[in-house]
Design a protein around this nucleic acid. Structure first.
Lengths: 209, 209
DNA sequence: CACTCATTCAAACGTTTGTTTTAAATGGGG
DNA sequence: CCCCATTTAAAACAAACGTTTGAATGAGTG
């Protein structure tokens, strides 16, 4: 097995097991044995378990955020002179996110993993995630601010948090909805995006006291 | 130290440490040493670590859900003949939740803990939480359905999930917002509720395709 | 006082964890 | 062909984990 194959096999299995059982509860022995590689390979290639989770997250989050930034910059340029609509900004952020499940076979695993990152008690994981989200969050905030010029800064801040909360919960629900009430119909990523964008847009545009 | 004191001291410390570091990463030794009790006391009084987290959650979640159900039943009765407004239903659910921080000194710890429950990778914790949420979620769904009679069942289902996601993220943000962008102003529970209710109401009432 | 029994205690149990260290085998690129 | 990064197997490491045990404690009761 070549170096490239070994590293990728570890990343694939780790992504799957981290998504299923969480970072803390997944042992390196479970990962390496399922990947069919030696236990020492993780420390050899990634330095530590922390290096592994970092690599697992960044392997997919960097391209995803690149895609989100492209979409955001596109709608910002297209609306350079005209008014920028909130639903356009929100769609630019949400669609690359949810569509990620269909870009890769392991897309659902990754969305589960990263959708849990903000709620992760382990500071290690949270810091890796937040560090990678800094830029796109700043741009997102500016874009939303431009589309909602009458919204006070701190109201915008909290509504952006509500948006992030709703979206990250939805990302976790794609693989398996934890609260499945009877009659909860599964949705593909596209129709889920079509459902959540109007919800978030209305919330962002809601009147405030 | 009486039995009552021992059990409560363990519950208080466990609530705090579980909120800070999560269920898996918090050891019984850390809990018992901080509580000033013997290590074996946990297994003696709660049977197991799982029994402890169950007791920690239910000690506060049962009264909280009782309060939420009271509010929901109240608004359902008051609007028995007239039309039921979505913002009234949402406020009946959200306000007891966020106000919980001011009912008890450890309210923020508990909200952090339970706000993370749905994202918890450990199936044990998730099942305890979901089991305790079943009834109030059913009532909440019925109430929202009555206030939004034109909303298809599966759209209501997903929007309720968006609501839960936004609220649970907010619950975790009360103690410490993980994504703190510059200019993020802290809010007390009351003004946070006043911020999130219009957001969620507009989202629930948004037009759908 | 003696007895009871729930509670507390120190100590140890067996298991699992991440990590490191051996040494030998492997195999692709210069 | 040979070098060297890589892979492997095996073992050991110290540390931390949840749980169990059996003796000590001590307040309440007859």
């Amino acid at each position: 097995m070549t170096q490239h194959e070994t590293k990728n096999k570890i990343l694939d299995v780790a992504e799957k097991l981290f998504a299923e059982a969480g970072y803390k509860a997944t042992s390196l022995r479970a990962i390496t044995s399922m990947a069919g590689v030696n236990l020492a390979a993780v420390n050899y290639h990634f330095g530590s378990k922390e290096g592994l989770i970092s690599a697992v997250i960044e392997r997919r989050l960097v391209p995803l955020n690149k895609s989100r930034l492209e979409q955001l910059h596109r709608v910002l340029v297209e609306a350079a002179d005209q008014s920028l609509q909130a639903n356009v900004v929100i769609r630019a952020f949400v669609e690359p996110t949810l569509m990620f499940t269909e870009t890769l076979p392991s897309g659902k695993n990754f969305l589960t993993l990263v959708g849990r990152a903000l709620a992760e008690p382990d500071e290690t994981v949270r810091k890796i995630f937040i560090h990678n989200m800094q830029e796109v969050m700043t741009v997102m905030r500016e874009a939303l601010g431009r589309s909602l010029p009458d919204l006070p800064s701190d109201v915008l801040f909290w509504r952006l948090n509500f948006l992030i909360g709703a979206l990250s919960h939805t990302m976790r629900c794609i693989e398996k909805c934890p609260m499945a009430l009877e009659g909860g119909v599964a949705r593909d990523a596209a129709s889920l995006a079509a459902l959540i964008v109007p919800f978030l847009t209305a919330g962002m545009e809601a009147p405030h006291a």
